[in-house]
């Protein structure tokens, strides 16, 4: 017998989940909570549950935060995040905060049952749509290889002219920019390469072979 706690502020959703699980006799809905406070009361009262279906949009607390609190209280209970949104940033945060899986709320019956079973077996479950998002994010991660910052086209041009010994003002004239803009680009580059003056910047970029 697997005991469930459903946390969702929408009574209809709780109802829907009950409907989906009515034929699975080994799954028992032990309790349902409509707010984070109710949920914490239930858990603090010592009502034992095996798996928590947690909606991350609750009226009284951010679901991500609640997930973290529950995980602090109880290391073994399984937590399956439920949300209506499918954004990679949210999914990764949820897993970081200790959830064992993530389901989109418009799941079908089979998916819910699969998810519960998988999570109870100790694996992480991500809904199919969520999986795609995560893979997308991994594929296009902004950070370039070797952690060498990417230079914008304007930055490269300014760097080139700096290396020829031109001042900000001269560069501004050459590129038809205001010297204020040139200087902002320069400052941005100093920060990117974590150096404090133009000379050190030139040394670093030469070392990295960015300019000759």
């Amino acid at each position: 017998m697997i005991k469930l706690l459903i946390i969702d502020d929408h009574p209809l959703v709780i109802d829907g989940i009950k409907t989906m699980l009515k034929d699975e006799s080994y799954l028992h809905i032990e309790a349902a909570a409509k707010t984070a406070k109710e949920a914490l009361n239930i858990l603090e009262a010592g009502i034992a549950v095996d798996i928590i279906l947690l909606d991350i949009n609750l009226p009284d607390m951010d679901g991500l935060r609640l997930c973290e609190i529950i995980r602090d209280m109880n290391k073994t209970v399984k937590i399956l995040g439920l949300t209506y949104v499918n954004e990679a940033g949210i999914i990764t945060q949820l897993i970081k905060k200790g959830a064992n899986g993530y389901l989109l709320k418009n799941m079908e019956r089979e998916e819910l049952i699969t998810a519960i079973n998988q999570v109870m077996d100790g694996t992480i479950y991500l809904s199919k749509a969520a999986n795609e998002k995560i893979i997308q994010q991994l594929q296009s991660l902004g950070l370039p290889q070797n952690n060498v910052p990417v230079l914008t086209r304007r930055e490269k041009e300014i760097l080139q002219l700096l290396s020829e010994g031109l001042t900000s003002q001269e560069i501004a004239g050459r590129l038809f920019l205001s010297s204020y803009t040139v200087d902002t680009h320069r400052k941005n580059m100093l920060q990117k390469f974590n150096v404090h003056n133009t000379q050190s910047l030139m040394n670093v970029v030469r070392e990295l072979g960015i300019i000759a």
Binding site: H10, L12, V13, G16, I17, T19, Y84, K105, M107, E108
Partner: peptide, 9 residues
């Protein structure tokens, strides 16, 4: 969103 999900369930 909640209603849609429930309909689907």
């Amino acid at each position: 969103g909640g209603i849609f999900s429930t309909v689907k369930m």
